[in-house]
Computed example of a mutant assay.
Amino acid sequence: MGTDDRVRAVYPGSFDPFTPGHLDVVDRARGIFDEVVVLVAVNGDKHPDADEKKRAAAVRAVLPPDWTTVTVAAWRGLTAAYCRDHDAAVIVRGVRNTSDIQAESRLAAMNESLGVATVFLPARPELAAVSSTVARAARR
C-alpha cells in the first residue's frame, strides 16, 4: 500500500474478449478499492486472437469515461510481480462456479505466498454463463 493509504487492486485476465461479466467485476471492484488496474496479461495456456496491447486497447474502449479510478495495462509476467512493481495490494478475481473457485484458490495461495492477497467476486447469476470462450465462439 502507498503512503497515502489508497488501495490499488489489480484485475488480471486474458480478456479475449472482455465480456459483460468482466465489466461487472471491474464496476464492483471500483466500488471497493480506490484504484483498479485491469491487467491484460499473457497466459501461455491461451492463444488469443490479438496481442495484449490490442486487447488492452479494446478494454479501454468499452470502459465508461467517468470511471476515472480504472486504468488498463498490458503485462507479460507474473501478476504478483506487477503488483509489487506498481504498489498494488490486492488481486481481484471473478468466479462463476465451483470449478473457478477451486482453480482460483490455488492461484490465490501462490500469490499470497508472494505477498499479494486475492479477493474473489462472485459472478452475478445472469452473467455467470458467459465466459470469454463462449463469447469468442459466438463472434465467429
Rank of each mutant, 00 (worst) to 15 (best):
Y11E: 13
S99T: 15
S131P: 03
L78P: 03
V134L: 13
W75N: 14
D66P: 11
H22A: 15
V70W: 08
L107E: 10
A138M: 10
A80C: 08
A108E: 11
V130A: 12
V70T: 06
E104L: 06
V40L: 07
V37D: 01
K53M: 01
V95A: 03
R84L: 12
T133E: 07
R28P: 04
F120V: 02
R8D: 03
V95Y: 13
A137N: 03
A103E: 02
P64S: 07
V10N: 01
N111G: 06
V116E: 01
V119K: 05
P20K: 09
T71H: 10
Q102A: 15
G13C: 12
R55I: 00
A103P: 08
R76T: 13
T79Y: 04
G31R: 14
A74I: 09
P48D: 10
V10A: 14
P125S: 03
G21H: 10
Y82W: 08
R30M: 13
N43S: 04
L127Q: 07
I32F: 05
R60I: 06
A73S: 07
T71V: 15
A103K: 06
F120K: 15
R96L: 08
A103L: 11
L121E: 13
A57M: 05
T3L: 14
A137K: 13
A81H: 12
R140Q: 10
R60H: 09
P48V: 00
I91L: 04
D5Q: 13
R106C: 06
V25L: 02
D66S: 13
K53A: 05
R28S: 06
E35V: 12
A109L: 11
V134F: 12
S131E: 05
D100W: 03
G77Y: 11
L23V: 04
I101E: 10
D16R: 05
V42W: 14
D66K: 04
L127E: 11
V26G: 08
A50Q: 07
Q102L: 07
A80I: 03
T71G: 07
L121Q: 06
A109P: 03
D16H: 02
E52R: 14
R60D: 08
V7C: 09
F15M: 04
V72W: 00
G44I: 00
A74M: 12
P125W: 02
G2W: 01
A58N: 12
V37E: 01
T68N: 10
G21L: 03
D34I: 09
S14K: 01
K53N: 00
P65E: 09
D5A: 15
M110C: 13
K53F: 08
N43G: 00
W67Q: 14
R8M: 08
D87G: 12
V62G: 05
T79C: 12
A80K: 13
G13L: 10
N97Q: 10
R55H: 01
V37G: 02
